[in-house]
Design a protein around this nucleic acid. Structure first.
Lengths: 140, 140
DNA sequence: GTGATTGCAAATCTTTTGCACTAAA
DNA sequence: TTTAGTGCAAAAGATTTGCAATCAC
């Protein structure tokens, strides 16, 4: 489970997904994948890009996030209305959601187990099981 | 676990929550609670209201849904970005989410069990555990 | 009366879209 | 070249807000 860190490794990852390694995609990929287990909104990634002097439009950030998700480099997590988080950890796992800060934190799959999953209705199959453990500050 | 159905019962429920039983709130409460286990978006409830000749503004529908949620008459469920569902079942339970139709279906809590919940970080406590079983059509 | 509630329309926020321009292969 | 990718600004949705009018108590 070694995580690829090199520039050329990122290019390879994009190519596997059939995505041309453009300047913008590479820059966003570096911001996303050179640290582990990130949970970012489109807006946060856009800000990081601007801070890192990477000129990217919001539209491209959205396009890129969705393309990365489609080819399995990211996973979309929905925990609050009106905002999507993108998770750089695409392994099977779950999340703590901190209501006071809006932050997400991974729960490795061996630390939480869903038992007795019911059968899905006929003609359908389970695509994914998402567990969100919503956490709040004690006496806020 | 009898569900209250009468008009005066609804008034009582609102009053318990400290909400004045206004024409709009009562009408929305009837639409929401006179059937069981509903999962509605604000827009869907607004449409139902108009169809039932209940004049309510969108703003009031949103206000009402959030007020009902705050006093425990409803539960907000987030499964897709940019749309909130409100669930009339406030008991402990989970959900099937049908990706093809956008529908939600309750999973009673005895049909799904989360084991080995990890401890939340210090200073925090678990507010709720949401499990969403995402289901898709076989060969779409 | 008077404070809570409502309606309306405008504002806000996130995300998507259309299309001319640019760059990778 | 030729086609994919990008930026921009406008559009689209969902939700919220501000404020005067209205209603419950």
């Amino acid at each position: 489970m070694t995580r690829e860190r090199s520039y050329s490794g990122l290019i390879a990852r994009l190519k596997v997904g059939g995505l041309r390694p453009t300047r913008q995609r590479l820059a966003l990929a570096r911001l996303l994948f050179e640290r582990e287990d990130r949970h970012l909104t489109a807006e946060q990634l856009h800000s990081e890009a601007l801070e890192a002097d990477v000129r990217v439009s919001v539209a491209t950030v959205y396009n890129t996030l969705h393309q990365f998700t489609k080819v399995g480099l990211l996973r979309e997590v929905v925990v609050e209305p009106g905002r999507s988080y993108f998770d750089t950890n695409v392994d099977d796992h779950h999340h703590f959601y901190f209501e006071s800060t809006g932050d997400l934190q991974d729960i490795p799959k061996d630390q939480l187990h869903v038992a007795e999953l019911p059968e899905p209705p006929g003609g359908t199959r389970i695509a994914r099981v998402d567990v969100v453990v919503r956490v709040q500050d004690i006496e806020p």
